[in-house]
Structure formats: C-alpha cells, structure tokens
Lab assay of single mutants.
Amino acid sequence: MGFKLLSKLLVYLTASIMAIASPLAFSVDSSGEYPTVSEIPVGEVRLYQIADGVWSHIATQSFDGAVYPSNGLIVRDGDELLLIDTAWGAKNTAALLAEIEKQIGLPVTRAVSTHFHDDRVGGVDVLRAAGVATYASPSTRRLAEVEGNEIPTHSLEGLSSSGDAVRFGPVELFYPGAAHSTDNLIVYVPSASVLYGGCAIYELSRTSAGNVADADLAEWPTSIERIQQHYPEAQFVIPGHGLPGGLDLLKHTTNVVKAHTNRSVVE
C-alpha cells in the first residue's frame, strides 16, 4: 500500500471513529477524501466538511520552486461564519470567499490569524475590503508590521502568557507558548472536538522541520505538551499544512522538532 493511500485511509478511519463516538456532533463529509496538494491548482481553494458547521479550507501556493498546501478553518456561528487564517495570499483568499459563498452561503463576518507569517495573514486586506472584521493577538499584529505583512485590524486580548485561553464565538483560542513562531495560536472547536494546530503542528508525513527561522526550538516541545494537557479530548487535529489526523500529530511534531534540534547540535 502506497504512503499517500495509507495517509488518506488514516484520515478516513479517524473521521469514521469520530462519527461513531459522537453521532450528534459529527456529520463528516462523505463526498470524498481530504484534498491534497496535487489536486488543488494554485489560485483555487477546496472546502472539506469535518463536522456539522465545521470545515477546513485548503489552498496551495508556490514557494521556492515548489507547491505547498495550506489549511485553515471555518466555523459556523449562528447565521454567520468565523474564518481562521487566510488562504495564503490575496488571490487565494478572494477564491476562498467565493467558494464559501458557493458552498455554504453564509457571510464571513470575523477572521482570526493564528500567527504573523504570510500563509496566515496574506489576504487580510481582501477580507477587510469584503467587510470582514480581522483579528490577531497584539504580538501577531506587531510582528506582521515588522515583517511588512498585512496586519489584522483588531487585537485579541488575554493571550499574552503561555497557557492563556479565551473564548471567541464558537471557538476557544489558546496560546501554548512559542513553537513554530513566538505568537502562534491554537484554535479548538469544543462542539466538535476539532483542534486546529496551525503551523505549530505537523502532518504525519512530514519528517523535516522546514521553516524554523522564527521558531523557538527549545520551547516548542513544552508548548505541545500544554496543548495535549489542555485538549486531551480532541479527536480531529488539523495541521497548518497537509493531512489531518488525531492527537498523534502532536507527538510526531515533537519528535521531528527534537530530531532537528539534535542534528543542529551535532553539526
């Protein structure tokens, strides 16, 4: 069995187990497998329904001669939608809004960016022009300005110390501490036991640490421990890039980060 097929099978099995364990909360999309990078042309966006009122959005972007996937989250909030992270750029984010209108038909009224990198804030200006209120932590807003990236308009308070959590509509926002970046936030959907790890969490097929220019490698494993301790009931975990899975993604990420750190020390 090929690795790609095995990865998709694991996603399907995880979703099936969740649907059985929580039949009222989960209505997993039966329309197909989780979209992969090879299936999404740059400039297009796919939506994948995880649970009743919960979707991931998947886009792709060219970077350094390669094409990478990027995940975000959409959560229903009454007759409105909360968006977590842009679709990595203005063109993708405009396509995301169009796809949401086509498939869901509810307005996106608020959006949260989970850290300051372009795959999370690139497209904020498109959201703002569409009347979406954009939010991020003060740290993310400051770092985005320093980096020359787009800056969300509103500040999220109460997320300055490791372990801080605040309720934001249908989700809980959690600051686990520094990891992929010093400002990275985690998003949890309690009604569906869905954990969105953003770039602080890796997919299972990833074996290298990737972009760690703004990471705190020493603190990252401790931050992941905080996530595990705060959300032990999480059933569906979405990484910032690639295929979702279960809580095993947290341990896998820790292993990859520690291996990278150990290699760096040896070198």
Rank of each mutant, 00 (worst) to 15 (best):
M1L: 06
G2M: 07
L6Q: 09
L6A: 14
S7W: 11
S7E: 10
K8H: 07
K8S: 12
L9S: 14
L9W: 14
L9G: 12
L10G: 14
Y12D: 14
Y12H: 10
L13T: 15
S16K: 07
I17N: 10
M18S: 15
A19V: 15
I20Y: 09
A21P: 08
A21I: 14
S22D: 12
S22R: 13
A25W: 11
A25G: 13
A25F: 11
A25M: 12
A25R: 14
F26Q: 15
F26D: 14
S27P: 12
V28T: 11
V28I: 14
V28F: 06
S30P: 12
S30H: 11
S30G: 15
S31N: 10
G32K: 10
G32T: 09
G32Q: 10
E33S: 10
E33Y: 08
P35H: 07
P35D: 07
S38M: 12
S38V: 08
S38E: 11
S38R: 10
E39R: 11
E39T: 12
E39L: 11
E39N: 12
I40F: 08
P41R: 09
P41N: 10
V42S: 12
V42D: 13
G43K: 06
V45S: 06
V45M: 04
R46S: 08
R46F: 08
L47Q: 05
Y48V: 15
Y48K: 11
Y48E: 09
Y48T: 09
Q49S: 10
I50F: 07
D52T: 11
D52E: 13
G53P: 04
G53N: 11
G53E: 09
G53W: 06
V54P: 02
V54I: 07
V54Y: 00
S56H: 08
A59Y: 05
A59E: 07
A59R: 04
T60M: 10
T60L: 09
S62I: 08
F63M: 14
D64H: 10
D64G: 13
G65M: 08
G65Q: 11
A66K: 11
A66H: 15
A66L: 13
A66G: 15
Y68S: 12
Y68H: 08
Y68Q: 06
P69E: 15
P69Q: 15
S70H: 02
S70W: 01
S70D: 02
G72C: 03
G72F: 04
G72W: 02
L73T: 01
I74M: 05
I74H: 01
V75C: 03
R76D: 04
R76H: 08
G78A: 09
D79Y: 09
L81Y: 00
L81H: 02
L81T: 04
L82G: 01
L83N: 00
L83P: 00
I84Y: 00
T86A: 07
T86L: 00
A87P: 04
A87C: 00
A87G: 02
W88I: 00
G89C: 00
G89A: 01
A90K: 09
K91A: 15
N92D: 02
T93M: 01
A94W: 11
A94P: 04
A95Y: 14
A95N: 13
L96V: 02
L96Y: 01
L97G: 00
L97N: 00
L97P: 03
A98D: 10
E101F: 06
E101R: 13
E101A: 14
Q103P: 06
I104M: 04
I104A: 00
I104K: 00
I104T: 03
G105P: 06
P107N: 10
P107V: 11
R110K: 12
R110S: 10
A111L: 04
V112N: 00
S113M: 07
T114I: 00
T114K: 04
T114S: 06
H115A: 01
F116S: 07
F116G: 04
H117T: 00
D118F: 05
D118H: 08
R120H: 06
V121L: 07
G122M: 13
V124M: 12
V124C: 03
V124D: 01
V126K: 06
V126P: 00
V126C: 03
V126H: 08
L127Y: 04
L127C: 00
R128S: 13
A130R: 14
V132S: 04
V132I: 13
V132A: 06
A133G: 09
A133K: 15
T134H: 02
Y135W: 11
A136P: 04
P138M: 08
P138C: 05
P138D: 09
T140P: 02
R141D: 01
L143F: 10
V146S: 14
E147W: 15
G148I: 02
G148V: 04
G148N: 10
G148R: 09
E150P: 07
E150I: 04
E150H: 04
E150L: 04
I151N: 06
I151R: 06
T153P: 06
T153G: 10
S155C: 06
S155K: 11
S155G: 12
L156D: 00
L156Q: 02
E157D: 14
G158V: 04
G158Y: 05
L159T: 02
S160F: 09
S161Y: 11
S162G: 14
G163R: 05
G163C: 01
D164Y: 06
D164H: 09
A165I: 14
A165Q: 13
F168E: 01
G169C: 06
P170I: 05
P170A: 09
V171M: 03
E172P: 00
L173H: 07
L173K: 00
L173G: 01
L173Y: 02
L173C: 04
L173P: 08
F174C: 02
Y175Q: 01
Y175P: 01
P176K: 01
G177P: 02
G177T: 00
A178K: 13
A179W: 03
H180T: 00
T182D: 11
T182Y: 14
D183F: 01
D183S: 01
N184Q: 00
N184G: 02
L185Y: 02
I186D: 00
I186S: 03
I186N: 04
I186E: 01
V187W: 01
V187M: 05
V187H: 00
Y188V: 02
Y188G: 01
V189S: 03
V189Q: 01
V189H: 06
V189W: 00
P190V: 07
S191P: 07
A192T: 11
A192I: 06
V194M: 06
V194G: 01
V194H: 02
L195A: 00
L195I: 08
L195F: 07
L195H: 05
Y196N: 04
G197A: 11
G197R: 03
G198C: 06
C199K: 02
C199W: 04
A200F: 04
A200G: 04
I201S: 05
I201Q: 00
Y202I: 15
L204R: 12
L204T: 09
S205W: 07
T207R: 12
T207E: 15
S208V: 13
S208M: 12
S208A: 12
S208E: 14
A209R: 10
G210Q: 05
G210N: 05
N211K: 09
V212M: 09
V212W: 06
A213F: 10
A213T: 11
L217I: 14
L217M: 12
L217W: 08
L217C: 04
A218T: 13
E219I: 10
W220F: 05
W220R: 04
P221A: 11
T222Q: 13
T222P: 08
I224S: 02
I224Q: 03
E225G: 12
E225W: 11
R226A: 08
R226F: 04
R226Q: 07
I227R: 03
I227K: 03
Q228D: 06
Q229K: 14
Q229I: 13
Q229L: 13
Y231A: 02
E233M: 11
A234S: 09
Q235T: 13
Q235F: 07
I238L: 07
I238Y: 03
I238M: 07
P239D: 01
G240K: 04
H241S: 01
H241D: 04
G242S: 05
G242R: 04
L243D: 15
L243H: 15
P244Y: 06
G245L: 02
G246H: 08
L247G: 10
D248S: 12
D248C: 05
D248A: 11
L249W: 03
L249I: 06
K251T: 14
H252Y: 05
T253L: 01
T254M: 13
N255F: 09
N255E: 13
V256E: 01
V257D: 01
K258W: 08
K258N: 13
K258D: 08
A259I: 09
A259D: 11
A259P: 09
T261M: 11
T261W: 12
N262M: 11
R263Y: 11
R263K: 15
S264H: 10
S264E: 13
V265N: 10
V265A: 12
V265Q: 13
V266R: 13
V266Y: 15
V266F: 13
V266I: 08
E267A: 05
